[in-house]
Design a protein around this nucleic acid. Structure first.
Length: 357
DNA sequence: AAAGCGGGGAA
DNA sequence: TTCCCAGCTTT
């Protein structure tokens, strides 16, 4: 890293100040001071791309239902997704369940403590590996997440684009160099806590920062502008028409097999076109008549935008949907199945309709 | 190396 | 609105 970084004497001052600040200011969170690797692992999975405040109630519900790894290993995926409903990035939940089942049968139920074995599990990347092994097993592995990238870019006034692989490796090397090997788990949580509470994205609270005097970005007056990121491109828009079909106090829904929202349930839908009704009739193998009333839903993902027209439908013949994963469900069954956030208003509307009948 | 993958809170 | 979050997998 050439001359970027702290020398050993400054690095020890950095660790002392950071850990001392953490000991005084850390938030009281249920997975802290927790020694069960399973619980620590769950918290790290839930916190991927997710804020602490958002994950907190999900974590509590999840641990309440699955207090041990062994209990989770026996769970049904649908139930796990229901507990994850609204948290997003549902592949996290499916990978975690898969990995936990693997730990249960391959490793006798004990979360492996080697990078090779733990890092080989589904959904465990470089970050999660370092986080769990350092926090649960006190191994000297430094984490690099969004918080750490921001803190390090400011600390060393790094202005390169950190999304590049070369810079990712640089970040990892700097982080590992700064790590306090005597308290690796606390150190990792401390630097992330600093990023979450003090060294925040827009307006860093430098006056409260325990290491402000070490900060090159602050010295150069550019801290708030770091890290430098490339601007994202415009979102593609996809338009769908989804139909609500009710028969005999039940509603027709389908389990998604696509990568996006895999395993979650939705209402029958096609890409909106001039003959949406024909396409829906084809999908359901029977003529479908669409009502005039339509209400629009929009949902923005990180990479695309959905515009969904919701319409009531009537059929004359017997519905024979193409493919599997279709079900006619009651109000009670809808309560139990996981739906993505975008369809929650439809779920509520359908349940009200069925109850009012 | 880049794209795909959710949802929500903060400014 | 815009940003971006205790990232991983697939292409």
């Amino acid at each position: 890293m050439q001359n970027r970084g702290l020398n050993n004497k400054k690095a020890s001052g950095w660790c002392r100040k950071l850990l001392s600040w953490y000991d005084d200011h850390r938030r009281d969170l249920p997975w802290r001071n927790e020694s069960d690797p399973y619980k620590i692992w769950l918290s790290e999975v839930m916190l991927q791309q997710t804020r602490v405040e958002t994950a907190l109630p999900y974590y509590k519900r999840f641990i309440s239902e699955y207090p041990t790894l062994q209990k989770l290993a026996l769970a049904e995926e649908g139930r796990v997704l229901k507990l994850w409903e609204g948290l997003g990035y549902y592949a996290r939940a499916r990978h975690f369940l898969q990995a936990v089942r693997e730990v249960d049968c391959q490793y006798g139920g004990r979360v492996p403590d080697t990078a090779k074995e733990f890092g080989g599990l589904a959904g465990v990347g470089e970050y999660t590996q370092a986080a769990v092994l350092s926090i649960a097993y006190h191994q000297p592995l430094a984490v690099v997440d969004g918080n750490v990238r921001r803190v390090l870019c400011r600390l060393f006034a790094i202005t390169e684009d950190t999304s590049k692989v070369k810079m990712q490796r640089e970040m990892q090397r700097i982080a590992q160099h700064l790590l306090d090997p005597s308290r690796p788990g606390d150190y990792n949580q401390a630097i992330m806590e600093l990023g979450a509470l003090i060294c925040i994205p827009r307006a860093p609270r430098c006056e409260q920062c325990p290491v402000a005097k070490l900060c090159e970005g602050r010295k150069a007056g550019i801290a708030a502008a770091l890290p430098v990121k490339k601007k994202k491109k415009v979102l593609p828009i996809k338009q769908y028409t989804a139909v609500v079909l009710l028969q005999a106090q039940k509603c027709l829904i389908r389990c998604r097999k696509e990568r996006l929202l895999h395993g979650l349930w939705e209402f029958p839908n096609v890409v909106t076109s001039d003959d949406t009704d024909v396409e829906l009739s084809s999908l359901l193998s029977t003529p479908v008549t669409l009502a005039k009333d339509v209400f629009q839903l929009t949902h923005e993902f990180s990479h695309l935008r959905w515009q969904i027209s919701i319409v009531l439908g009537e059929t004359t013949g017997e519905v024979q949907p193409q493919g599997d994963g279709w079900r006619w469900v009651t109000v009670e069954e809808m309560d139990v199945l996981p739906f993505p956030a975008v369809y929650q208003p439809v779920v509520k509307m359908v349940q009200k309709k069925l109850r009012d009948n």
